[in-house]
Structure formats: structure tokens, C-alpha cells
Design a protein around this nucleic acid. Structure first.
Length: 966
RNA sequence: GCGGGGGUAGCCAAGUCUGGUCAAAGGCGCAGGGCUUAGGACCCUGUCCCGUAGGGGUUCGUGGGUUCAAAUCCCACCCCCCGCACCA
């Protein structure tokens, strides 16, 4: 199959990005082979479904993966970051089908949103072509965005691929042997016209509606049964009558050897859910109304009455009435009492005798909650729309806090939620109950047909509900690295709640089930352990092994170590060395160290991924880590092709370049927060990246001086940045890490230049080199460019990650700068407060005696917290005779100083810097003067000839000088 | 309903685990200044309220509580977003 090349040109807005992409490719620096001398790190992201272009949502998750891969690679790990394409599923077939039918909307989306050239859209009537097309295009996007992928290992899924389906066959045979696959049946939303399940996106109406389980309760009458459907079987003890809608026709049907009376529509529904449903006869409800039927379990006779609120299209069209606890039923009785419409039935007398029966005790209500709420809301008949609301209220209250009263046989004293289940089972056991699946809301298929619920028979299930399997999975989840931590509980909950999963389909692309080939393994079920395939796909892609040679025995050996390689080599005619090499390679790379995905996959794919690994592999090969992240919004809105809120990655790259796209995404969110893509942000980031490159160019050109006064500070800051960026990356806090690497470093650099007045030292160049490295995982193209501008050989992508050099950390240099910044800040505040022109700043440094007080007061604060001001004041008075009057003010300033500095600085640092305080201001005098536009004079408290008109020198404390402005 | 996440200044968004350095990072917007032929970019300053000296007052969904001290801990409530299955 040939896919047109012109459709797949991806051009970045930034010229050098293409250059580096090609150089990487040429140098093959991202191809990873086993290397026993290095620790390995295998990272992957879930492959994406090839039914459209990769978009910025993919971009977000995948960029996080790439950043982590690049980071680990620079840290010296042998990193494997593989890639593949998901073709399995029914959506692509749906697109083809719609296109064939001439659906203009889908055509428009393909051309206008996805950017498919109009002349080839016609070929999209072949589902395989679609996936092929997007795979070709998206591969180019993955390269263009700079993901550091080993493309030798690439594959796509389904039996269209030479070997993928052999792998899936092995997987399913293995699961079946272990009894994790079983036959069963399950309800689906079904279109009778299309004769297929109607998934959410195949619907015109009823998105998100899923089948709900009703209990059928059989009331016997004349050798047949009235089949009432209910969500609340426990209310059977409060039944007073049965409702039929007299305006509609009912039918007598035979199911499982029993004769049932239901509405005509219900008969149709039942026939999709039960075998051998036969319609025997029409039944006119008039012939039943006024008669009595026998209630199961309690054997009492209840009358059959007319009610128009009964919807014959819903459930069975037969409703049993519980006026004590169901507002509709009580309202139905009210209607019968007040209206003369049904006089023909002569039921007035019967109706008069009916009294609600109280069977559930619920907080906040008396005997008859339904009666109460109907009266409270002043509802007068069964046509009142507020009955919906009343029903919801009572239903919910009783379900959550209701307890069955004494008149409920063996169910008395049980909570409603438990009794409901038990009554249902009892009824079914007695063959006086059954299950009916119903759609709580109307669902209409895209073809325009109203859907119903069908029970699909002989469906294959993955038995996720198996308690042993579950508990193994849960135990492993407790031991995994899960990022962020909150996701762990979510996983555990999902495992608890997961039921058996229908793992086969009849339509769409995929792999046939080996033992039952009319079924195709469903999309979420054929993509669980494929990362294992990456470890050997490199060899398979070379064509040295034919697909037919990939038998179950082959995979048993390579992945599970079963069997004798020599024998197997003989049998399969696979070179023994190659066979062993594949086994070795699997053992080298596996398990997956980190899998990164959006959080929407937690309740399905990611959990399945753990389940299947646990089921199939040795424990040492189970996944080590999972990181999940939020889902993209665009300008605050959910992504949506139909509303135009959709940005393909190729578009972002073409508009802003790969690095700006990556960086904008990374800066948008981390953990489970949803990132928001904003045009304004990406513009801003693009400029910032340009600014960064400009700085690198300037430094590369600059005449470097040997040393500046700010070098120590700059190096110290650098160490802190390295530490923080590394720590954040380690736990995939990509937002924080990227922010600090870009803006944090930038701020340090700006301050450095501001202080040195643009003079750049050799150390400063070191800072810039480190900056390039620290940014390399985030904006790799720009960093390669920067690296070469700095005159460096090779790729920064495979340089070593900076490590913290403890000896370069200088708290004194940092504190010194802080003191200067604080001084300037204080002066500015005062300048803004006092009127008039300011020309001169006088700084007063505290007397030397005050330095000793720092330690003494520090000790008091340590011992007693900040409470004991008295003791601090006394200490000050004893050390500074004659300062009694201002001792309390000084005490406060001291305490402020100490409590603000001690979290970051050791006492010794503070004292050392205080000793040098005068020197610090004298050194920075010119800078301070320039910053503030004031002349600067410096005095020490107590100095002779001191100029101090406001007596500011007196209330000074070390590192908190007095200020006088005039 | 169940499960998960969240409500912070004009807006976006950190901080919450590990209470005090938080009137609260960063960005945007806005205002003033510098640079520039001009604009853009860039740089500096300001941006809750009050204050002619580095101070004070009131804030972090709402209401309580714990504490010398709460955006941060505890309880209750209100509101928003996401998932709930055969769909990738």
C-alpha cells in the first residue's frame, strides 16, 4: 500500500530544528542496545490509535515521557524509549463506513481538521488505509517534535502486521491456559437495524447511557404472570396493587416455559435478551383491570388498576405499586380517587380500601415517605412533572439510609441496599423473578434507529473479577512507583470495582482469537503487554525470523524462559544464537521502569496492563512504575474536533516550533492537573526560548574575565538549581522542573549581569553551559543549537547531566545578596512614601556589640519559641547599656531577623556575613547608588562624626541597617 | 450515586504533604520609567486597603475547631471538573 508523501510533510517554524532532527537520526543516538556496563531504563507511553493526527493532548503526555527518557539518558542510564502504533478497533471502520455512505461531515473533518488532502480522502473508505496513512504522518510528527525514540523497534497492531498477531495469539492462549479467559454473556446497547452494538460515538441521542439492570417480578394470574419491572425489588413487601396503562396493548408471551403478560414493546426487548420468546396472543388491559393477582414471596392478592403514568415503552409496561414509598404510585391512587375517567372499571371501592404500607424506616421521614413528599409538594395527580424529582429524592434517601422494617420477613432489619440484592436473588431462585436490562434514557443510533439492550451470548471475557488475580494485582500496585501518589488509591479502587471484561468483538481491525476465529480481540485487550514485544521487535523487524516461526513455544521461551533453546532452535529453524539473543535482550530490558499516560487510562488500559503482566510474566518482570497526568484543554475548553477546539501537533510545530510546543505543554501542568493550551502562553514561551538562545550567543561571543565578585553567588545558585531540577524531574514534576530550568536560571543570570554590569567571567560561561544541559530534556533542539554555538562537539542530548558540587554551595554569598536586595527594597518603599526629591541615602550599620546578640537571642528563640520577649529584652539591656528605651523595638527586629533567616541559613553563616556587613555595602555601594539613583554614604553606629539627623543608627540590628533618605 | 481531582488576589497559576521565611512565586493584563526614528522586543519600577520612614489593617470557596501561630492541620457544608466499561 502506498501512502502519498505530499500529505505528510511536517515543517517546523524553527529552521534549526530540522537540522538537529536529521543529525540525531544520522548519528542514531537514540537507538538502544543491551549494554551490561550501564544500568538500563525502559520507558514507554501507550501507543496511540491511528485514526487521526497526533494532537497536543498526545503531545503533552508523550513530551513528559520524552523528557524523562532524555533526563535518564543524560544521567547515564541506557534508555530504551520505543514506539508503536495502535490499529486495533472499530472506530476506523466506522469512519470508512460513513465515508462510503457519503457522510459530508466526516469528509469535512478529515480535510479541514485533520488536514487530509481532498484527492486522497476517497481512499479512506479502506480502514487499513486510514491507519496506514496516519502512521506515516504521525511518525514524522514524532520525529519532528524531537522524541528520542528507537525507531528500529516500531510496529503496529492487528493481523495486518506480519507478526503482531502471533504475539497476541500467544498472549491469549496463555491467558486461557491460566483460566483468565472465559465464555459468558453480557448486555450491550444494540441497534436492531445495524445489528451491532452502538458505542457512545455511534449515537445521535443518548451519549453516556448504559444498560441498567431491572428486576422482573412475576405476579400470578390465571395460569400466567403479570411481569412487573422494578429497580427496587425490596419494596415487594409494600405492594398494594398493580398498574397497567389502559391506553396500550399488552401481549401474552411465552418465555422459559412460563406465560408472561407484558407490553408489546417489552416483548420485543425481551426477545433480544432471552432465548425463545414467543408471542402467543394480544391482551387487552381492560380484561385485567379490576382483577387480582398474587404477589410472590408474600402470597397476597392485589388488584390490577389503570394508570396513565405507566410508560408501555419502558420496562415491561407493568408496574407494581408501592404507595408508601413511591411517589408516582401514591399520586396514581390520588388520581383514581379524584378522577371519574375510569368509572367504567367500577374500581372506586377497591381504590378506597387501599392503604399505603410502610416497610422502610428512613431518617427524616415518618411512616410513608412517598405520601409525605407528595403532600408537601402539593402534588395532586400522577401527571405532575415534579414527581420525577420527588421519586429521585425518596429513592436516594431510602437507598442510602433506609432500613427494612419488621414486616419484611427475613429481610427485616437489613439495609435497603443489601435487601434489594437479596430479594432479587430470592425471587430469581424461586423462579418468580428475572432480570431485564433497560436503557434509562432513549438512545438513538447514528442510523436513526432507536436502540435497545441486547444480551450478547458466547462472548469471551477476561475474568478480572477473579479475586485471586485481583489481590495479586493490588499487592503489586502497593509496591509500584506511582506518580502522583494520589493515583495509587484510584488504581486500588478500580481493581476493586472491575468486573469481567468482554474482550472480543465481531467487527473492526484486530487479531482473531486463536481458538474461536469468528471473534476479534478487542482494542483494549490486545494492548496490555506489548511493551515486552519491543524488547525483541528490533530483531523481528530485520526479517531474520518469519512470522510463522513465532509459535507459542517461541514466546514461552523468550518471555518466560520455558523450554530448551537448542531444541527449540532446531524445531523452529531459528538460529540458536539469535534465539538466545532475544531471550537475553528481553531479560536485559524488562520490566518497564516507567509508563507515562493520561489519567483517563487509569480505569482501563493502565489497570489492564498491570493485570495482564501479573497474569503472564514472572514477578520480576511486572511493571515498576506508572505516572499519570491530566488531559489537555484548549483556551480553557475541552478538546473537540466538531467545535474546532483541536490542534494537531503538526500545526503547533509548524506555527511555533517543536521546542516552544513542548515547553508550553510542560509548563501548563503536572501531576493530575489538566494542562490548558493557550495561544498567549506559547507565544511567550517562544520568545523566552529565543531570548535564551540570544544569551548563549552573547556569552559565546563575550570577552570573558577571569573572575567577578558575583561568581561565588552564581555558582552557588547553580548548584541549588541543579539539585531542585533533578529532584523534580525524578518524580516527574515536569512543570516545576521546566519552569526552574527556564525561568529560574534566567532570573539568576539576569541578576548576575545586573550586578556585574554585564561583565561575564569564565565561571559565568560554566553557568551557561550547565544551563544548556539542564534545559536539554525540555527543549532539545534549541539546546543542541546552543551547544554548538558554545563551540562544543557532539550532542548535548547525550552529555552528562549536571551534578551538584557541594563545595560550590556558598550560603554566605547568597545571604550577602539577600541583604543587599532587602536593603534596596526597603529604601524603595520609603522613597515611595516620603514626598519630594530624594538625592542621598545614608546607611547605618549596627555596632559590633550587636553581633554577639544574634547568637544569644537565637538561643532564647530556639529554647522558648518567640514567646519570651521579656528575656530577650533583658538580654539586650544587659549587653547594650543605655539602650533601655529602645530595647523592645530592637528585640522585635532581632526576632524577625532570626526567624526569617534561620530556616535557610545556619547561625554561623549569619554571623559571618554580619561580621563583613560593612565590606558588603562598600563593595555594592556603586550598584546600590545606581539602582536607586541616590548618592550613598555609609556609617557605623557609634562612629565619631556620624551624620544621623533622625537618629536612625540606634535602632539598627546586624544585616538590617538603618536608612536615612533626604 | 460511587470513585478521583479541585476552589488562592483583575485573569491564569504556584504554595497545602513537612503550620511560622505568606500580602502569598511566576506569567498575563494594567500603570509609570528606560532603550528606540517610531512600534515591537527587551530592561527597570509599581499593581488588596491605609500610612510623609522600612509600619499597620483585611484576605486564600463557606462556617466552625485545634494552636502562641493556619492558605497550610481537623470537622461540617457549598460549588466546579473528570471516570463509571465494551469505547479508543
Amino acid at each position: 500500500m502506498v501512502v502519498e508523501q505530499k500529505a505528510t510533510i511536517i515543517e517546523s517554524a524553527v529552521p534549526y530544528e530540522k537540522k538537529w532532527m536529521e543529525k540525531w537520526k544520522q548519528a542514531r543516538i537514540f537507538e538502544a542496545d543491551p549494554d551490561p556496563s550501564k544500568p538500563k531504563f525502559m520507558i514507554c507511553v501507550p501507543y496511540s490509535y491511528q485514526n487521526g493526527p497526533l494532537h497536543i493532548g498526545h503531545g503533552f503526555t508523550f513530551t513528559r515521557g520524552d523528557v524523562y527518557a532524555r533526563f535518564k539518558r543524560m544521567q547515564g542510564y541506557n534508555v530504551l524509549f520505543p514506539w508503536a502504533w495502535h490499529w486495533t478497533g472499530e472506530a476506523v471502520a466506522g469512519t470508512s463506513e460513513r465515508l462510503k455512505q457519503g457522510d459530508q461531515f466526516i469528509r469535512k473533518v478529515l480535510i479541514e481538521i485533520d488536514g487530509v488532502p481532498p484527492e486522497i480522502v476517497e481512499k479512506f473508505t479502506d480502514p487499513a488505509y486510514i491507519s496506514k496513512y496516519y502512521t506515516e504522518e504521525n511518525r514524522k510528527v514524532v520525529e519532528a517534535i524531537g522524541f528520542s525514540v528507537d525507531f528500529r523497534r516500531e510496529f503496529y497492531t492487528t493481523d495486518l502486521h506480519p507478526y503482531y498477531s502471533y504475539f497476541i495469539k500467544w498472549q491469549y492462549n496463555t491467558l486461557r491456559k491460566k483460566k483468565y479467559v472465559a465464555l459468558g454473556k453480557h448486555p450491550v446497547v444494540w441497534c436492531p437495524k445495524c445489528q451491532s452494538p452502538t458505542g457512545d460515538h455511534d449515537r445521535l441521542i443518548g451519549e453516556g447511557v448504559s444498560p441498567q439492570e431491572y428486576t422482573i417480578v412475576l405476579f400470578s394470574i390465571d395460569g400466567a404472570y403479570l411481569a412487573a419491572a422494578t429497580l427496587r425489588p425490596e419494596t415487594i413487601f409494600g405492594v398494594t396493587n398493580i398498574w397497567l396503562n389502559p391506553n396500550h396493548e399488552y401481549v401474552l408471551i411465552e418465555v422459559d416455559g412460563k406465560k408472561l403478560i407484558v407490553s408489546r414493546k417489552a416483548a420485543l426487548k425481551l426477545s433480544e435478551q432471552k432465548k425463545n420468546v414467543k408471542i402467543l396472543d394480544a391482551v387487552n388491559p381492560d380484561t385485567l383491570i379490576g382483577k387480582y393477582a398474587k404477589t410472590p414471596l408474600i402470597d397476597i392478592e392485589v388488584p390490577i388498576l389503570p394508570a396513565e403514568f405507566v410508560d408501555p415503552d419502558f420496562g415491561t409496561g407493568v408496574v407494581y405499586s408501592v404507595p408508601g414509598h413511591a411517589p408516582y404510585d401514591y399520586a396514581g391512587l390520588l388520581t383514581l380517587k379524584t378522577s371519574s375517567k375510569w368509572d367504567k372499571y367500577n374500581i372506586k371501592e377497591i381504590v378506597e380500601k387501599i392503604k399505603p404500607i410502610s416497610i422502610i424506616k428512613v431518617e427524616g421521614y415518618g411512616e410513608y415517605p412517598a405520601v409525605e413528599i407528595v403532600e408537601k409538594m402539593k402534588i395532586l395527580d400522577d401527571k405532575d412533572p415534579r414527581l420525577e424529582e420527588a421519586t429521585r429524592e425518596i429513592y436516594s434517601k431510602e437507598f442510602h439510609s433506609g432500613v427494612m422494617k419488621d414486616n419484611c420477613r427475613e429481610f427485616s432489619g437489613k439495609t435497603v441496599s443489601i435487601a434489594r440484592d437479596e430479594v432479587k436473588h430470592k425471587l430469581i431462585e424461586m423462579k418468580l423473578g428475572d432480570v431485564l436490562w433497560e436503557l434509562p434514557e432513549k438512545v438513538v443510533c447514528r442510523c436513526g434507529t432507536e436502540c435497545l439492550v441486547k444480551i450478547v451470548e458466547n462472548q469471551w471475557f477476561l475474568t478480572y473479577s477473579d479475586p485471586e488475580w485481583k489481590s495479586k494485582v493490588k499487592e503489586h500496585i502497593l509496591n509500584m512507583k506511582i506518580i502522583p501518589e494520589e493515583a495509587r488509591q484510584w488504581f486500588l479502587n478500580v481493581v476493586d470495582w472491575l468486573k469481567d471484561w468482554a474482550c472480543t468483538r465481531k467487527t473492526g481491525l484486530g487479531t482473531r482469537l486463536p481458538w474461536d476465529p469468528e471473534w476479534i480481540v478487542e482494542t483494549l485487550s490486545d494492548s496490555t503487554i506489548y511493551p515486552a514485544l519491543y524488547t525483541i521487535s528490533k530483531h523481528l523487524n530485520q526479517g531474520l525470523v518469519k512470522p510463522e516461526q513465532l509459535t507459542d513455544e517461541f514466546f514461552d521461551y523468550v518471555f518466560l524462559g520455558k523450554g530448551e533453546p537448542a531444541k527449540l532452535s532446531n524445531k523452529l529453524k531459528i538460529d540458536l544464537r539469535l534465539l538466545k539473543e532475544m531471550r537475553e535482550e528481553f531479560l536485559y530490558w524488562y520490566p518497564v521502569d516507567m509508563r507515562i499516560s493520561a489519567k483517563e487510562l487509569v480505569p482501563n488500559h493502565l489497570t489492564f496492563y498491570i493485570f495482564h503482566h501479573v497474569a503472564i510474566f514472572d514477578e520480576k518482570h511486572w511493571p515498576r512504575g506508572i505516572a499519570v497526568n491530566g488531559m489537555i484543554t484548549i483556551e480553557g475548553e475541552k478538546m473537540s474536533k466538531s467545535r474546532g477546539k483541536f490542534i494537531p501537533l503538526k500545526t503547533a510545530i509548524a506555527r511555533y516550533g517543536a521546542d516552544a510546543t513542548r515547553c508550553t505543554l510542560l509548563l501548563a501542568a503536572e501531576d493530575m492537573d489538566d494542562p490548558d493550551w493557550r495561544e498567549k502562553n506559547v507565544q511567550e514561551v517562544k520568545q523566552m526560548i529565543e531570548q535564551f538562545l540570544k544569551i548563549v550567543e552573547e556569552v559565546a561571543r563575550a570577552e570573558l574575565v577571569e573572575h567577578t565578585y558575583m561568581d561565588r553567588w552564581l555558582m552557588s545558585k547553580l548548584q541549588k538549581r541543579i539539585k531542585s531540577i533533578t529532584m523534580n524531574l525524578e518524580s516527574l514534576k515536569t512543570r516545576k522542573a521546566c519552569h526552574e530550568a527556564l525561568y529560574g536560571m534566567y532570573n539568576d543570570w539576569k541578576w548576575y549581569l545586573r550586578r556585574t554590569e554585564g561583565v561575564i567571567s569564565k565561571k559565568a560561561k560554566t553557568f551557561i553551559e550547565n544551563w544548556v544541559k539542564l534545559l536539554a530534556p525540555f527543549i532539545p533542539f534549541t539546546c543542541e543549537e546552543a551547544w554548538s554555538i558554545l563551540g562544543k562537539e557532539g550532542f548535548v542530548s547525550i552529555e552528562s547531566w549536571p551534578i551538584v558540587l557541594g563545595e560550590l554551595i556558598s550560603p554566605e554569598a547568597e545571604l550577602q545578596e539577600e541583604v543587599i536586595i532587602k536593603l534596596i527594597e526597603d529604601v524603595r518603599r520609603i522613597i515611595n512614601l516620603i514626598p519630594g526629591k530624594k538625592e542621598k541615602l545614608t546607611i547605618y550599620i549596627s555596632s559590633r556589640e550587636k553581633i554577639d546578640l544574634i547568637e544569644e537571642i537565637y538561643k532564647i528563640v530556639e529554647e522558648e519559641g518567640q514567646k519570651n520577649m521579656g528575656r530577650i529584652i533583658k538580654t539586650i539591656i544587659s549587653k547594650l547599656p543605655g539602650k533601655e528605651k529602645i530595647a523592645s523595638t530592637l528585640a522585635k527586629i532581632y526576632v524577625d531577623l532570626i526567624s526569617s533567616l534561620t530556616p535557610n541559613y545556619k547561625l554561623k553563616t549569619i554571623i559571618n556575613v554580619a561580621e563583613r556587613e560593612e565590606e558588603i555595602y562598600r563593595e555594592a555601594r556603586e550598584f546600590i547608588s545606581k539602582e536607586l539613583g541616590l548618592g550613598v554614604e555609609i556609617y557605623r553606629e557609634g562612629e565619631q562624626d556620624i551624620y544621623d539627623p533622625l537618629n536612625k543608627s540606634e535602632i539598627t540590628v546586624p544585616l538590617r541597617p538603618g536608612i536615612y533618605i533626604e
